[in-house]
Write a protein that binds this DNA or RNA. Structure first.
Lengths: 181, 181
DNA sequence: ACTTGTGGTTTAATATTCTTAACAACGATC
DNA sequence: GATCGTTGTTAAGAATATTAAACCACAAGT
C-alpha cells in the first residue's frame, strides 16, 4: 500500500481533517493533500512531523497493516504441525496464517530434552508460561527452574537455553515475535 | 537514533560501501553520503530505493532495534499483575519489560464470563491455546467451541468475542502483537 | 438566494533534495 | 615514492518537495 493511501487511512482513523492535522503537525494543508494523492514523496522529516500530529511513529506507520484478510481462525488439538523432533515437540498454532506476526507454540519437553549447550539467539522477543512439569531456563548467564504457572519473557538477542532436568514431561505455551524458524 | 546513523549502521552491517549500495539501489553515492551525515532528510521514495539495495523494508528500517538491554527474564506464578477483572482474569507475562513486542497473557474465564456482545477489534494479530475447560470463540461471524489443546489465531482487526458457556473455569494462554491495552 | 464555514484541491514561488563531477585521504602494488 | 583503486566528502545545477494563497464544492444557517 502506498504512502498516500496509508496516510489518508490513519488520518481518517484519527478523525482529523487535513487542516486540523496540518496545524497539529506544523505543516500546511496543501502538503498533506499532495502526499495523500501521491503527487509528491515526502521527505522523512516532513512525514515524521505529520505523524507526530496524530501521534504515530514512523515505525508504526510503515508497519501498519492494511488488508485484514479472512483466514482460518480455529485449530483442533491434533492438527498442529510439529516443528521440533521427538525430544522437543513444537506445535505451531495458526498454521494456515500467511503473514504471521507471532509464532505461538505448544512445546513439550521429554525428560532430559535440551536445546543444547551452544546458546540460541536471534531477533525479536519471546516469552512463555509453564503448564505442567519443570524446566531449567538459562538467559544471559542467569539460570532458573520454572514450574507450572511460572513464566519468562526476554529479548531473543540474549543467548538462551532450555533443559528439562526433571523426570516428567514439561509442557509450555510460548510466543515469539517476529517468528523465527 | 537519527536516520543517517541508522542507515550507516545497517549499511556497515551488510558490508557494503556507499558506492556499492548506491549502484544496487539506483542512486548516487553522494546521496547516501549526504543522508548518512544528516545533511539532508531523504524523501521516503529515495530512502525506499536505498533500502531496496540491501534489501530492507521501511518498516524494518524504522523498527530496527539497536541496544538489546539486559532485563528481568523470569516471573513466578503469583507475581503477574491482573489486567482484567474478577470474571476475566488477564495475567500479563513479563511485566518489567519496557519496549514490549508481544503481550502474553494467562487468561482465566469464570463460568459465564463474556467479553461482551459489542465485538472487539484492534491492530495486530493474536492467538492462544486452551489449557483447561471450554470456551466459545467468535471471529468474524464464525463461532466455535474450543477445548483443552485446541487453539486459535487471527487478525485482530476481525471482530471477535470470547464467552465461557460451560460450568467450569476455562484457562487460556494467549499472545497478541502488537500489545494493546 | 446569499452568506459563512468547512472540506479537499491546485498553482506559482520558494526551499530542499538529488545528481553530476569533482576533490582529498588512505592503502596496496609496483 | 609514484600510480592505481577505493574510500567518503563536497559544490553547483537540475529535479523535486513545501509553502502561501488561491480555488472549487458542499452543507448549514439566515
Amino acid at each position: 500500500m502506498d504512502v498516500g493511501a496509508r496516510l489518508r487511512m490513519v488520518r481518517d482513523r484519527f478523525g482529523l481533517s487535513q487542516r486540523e492535522l496540518a496545524k497539529r503537525a506544523g505543516v500546511t494543508n496543501g502538503t498533506i493533500s499532495l502526499i495523500e494523492q501521491n503527487r509528491v514523496s515526502p521527505s522523512v522529516s516532513s512525514l515524521k512531523k505529520v505523524l507526530e500530529g496524530l501521534p504515530m511513529t514512523l515505525a508504526e506507520f510503515f508497519t501498519f497493516d492494511v488488508e485484514p484478510q479472512q483466514q482460518r481462525a480455529f485449530y483442533q488439538a491434533d492438527e498442529l504441525p510439529n516443528l521440533g523432533n521427538e525430544q522437543i515437540q513444537l506445535l505451531l498454532v495458526g498454521t494456515a496464517h500467511e503473514r504471521r506476526d507471532i509464532a505461538i507454540l505448544r512445546e513439550r519437553y521429554e525428560p532430559g530434552a535440551d536445546t543444547g549447550p551452544d546458546m540460541l539467539f536471534h531477533e525479536g522477543q519471546e516469552g512463555g508460561v509453564v503448564i505442567t512439569g519443570e524446566i531449567e531456563v538459562t538467559v544471559n548467564n542467569e539460570t532458573r527452574v520454572l514450574g507450572p504457572g511460572d513464566s519468562y519473557y526476554f529479548d531473543s538477542k540474549l543467548p538462551h537455553r532450555f533443559r528439562n532436568i526433571g523426570d516428567s514431561v514439561c509442557e509450555i505455551v510460548s510466543a515469539s515475535s517476529p517468528p523465527t524458524f
